[in-house]
């Protein structure tokens, strides 16, 4: 799933586990980190706090529902607050073999529009997250080359420090460095670099076991060049909860009600 994808996926990226790993290469560690949380459905409500350069903050409340169906993944994102964006809903349907289908419902247009994915480096609805950041846990491991830079402690936890360099030179980051805890394979921190140097710092915290899956309930992404940040606090998270099929349809985007 790309771009207009899971907020929860950002969190999942910080919650992988290898179990009993032996001597692993960097690629296996990254793969295990990204693949750990398996669920047929994910439902979440998150509060996003966007802090501007002058310290002023704006808040967004976002619901997200995702379904890992046989035909492909389907994700719905619903903006609940503030009032200026409330009722905005996105639907993404993954299609094996061709581009994802995406639709958006904007209350100001009162209709569902098919849309293309925005530029990967573009801001995700005004946050510091780019669309690439949002879909980072779905990024194919093969899209980057990985290397273990070193091993060190972070907040008292033994970590691998792994550098990932995109094979596609047009990707928005020139390199990404992840701190992944040994044993659990939970990603604790990431530094994202562009041509100018360190661009973003991604930090995961408040780990909590949710239905047997260790999940970071707080994520903070700081844009160090713009001196802004976006924090995501997960208020509600449910794995494998039954979600009516009608949620993943354009009809739901129009009415906000599964039928």
């Amino acid at each position: 799933m790309k771009r207009l994808a899971l907020l929860a996926a950002v969190l999942a990226a910080g919650a992988a586990s290898l179990g009993a790993q032996g001597a692993l290469g960097a690629e296996e560690i990254v793969r295990a980190s990204r693949d750990r949380i398996q669920a047929d459905t994910v439902s979440s409500r998150s509060r996003m706090m966007i802090v501007a350069k002058d310290g002023s903050a704006t808040e967004r409340l976002v619901d997200q529902y995702s379904l890992d169906a046989k035909e492909g993944k389907r994700t719905v994102i619903v903006f609940q607050k503030p009032a200026s964006v409330a009722g905005t809903r996105f639907l993404t349907v993954s299609n094996p073999g061709r581009d994802d289908d995406r639709w958006i419902f904007l209350p100001s247009l009162a209709k569902v529009r098919r849309i293309a994915g925005s530029e990967g480096s573009g801001s995700f609805v005004g946050t510091d997250f780019s669309y690439d950041d949002i879909s980072s846990s779905d990024r194919e491991v093969e899209e980057d080359t990985h290397a273990i830079l070193r091993e060190e402690k972070l907040e008292g936890k033994d970590c691998w420090v792994i550098e990932s360099r995109p094979k596609d030179p047009s990707f928005q980051y020139t390199r990404m460095v992840h701190w992944i805890e040994k044993g659990s394979c939970i990603a604790l921190k990431a530094e994202l670099y562009d041509k100018k140097g360190l661009l973003k710092l991604l930090e995961f915290s408040q780990f909590k076991e949710v239905q047997g899956r260790i999940t970071p309930m707080a994520t903070k992404l700081s844009n160090l060049q713009a001196n802004t940040s976006t924090s995501i606090a997960v208020e509600i998270l449910k794995y494998d909860e039954k979600i009516p099929a009608g949620v993943f349809t354009p009809r739901y985007l129009e009415t906000g009600r599964p039928q």
Binding site: R45, D63, Q80, K238
Partner: peptide, 19 residues
């Protein structure tokens, strides 16, 4: 009550937190 699904309106957050 509406048919059960989702977290409801933001004002219903506390209730929605219940499993």
């Amino acid at each position: 009550a509406q048919e059960g699904f989702g977290f409801g309106e933001p004002e219903a957050e506390a209730a929605a937190a219940l499993p």
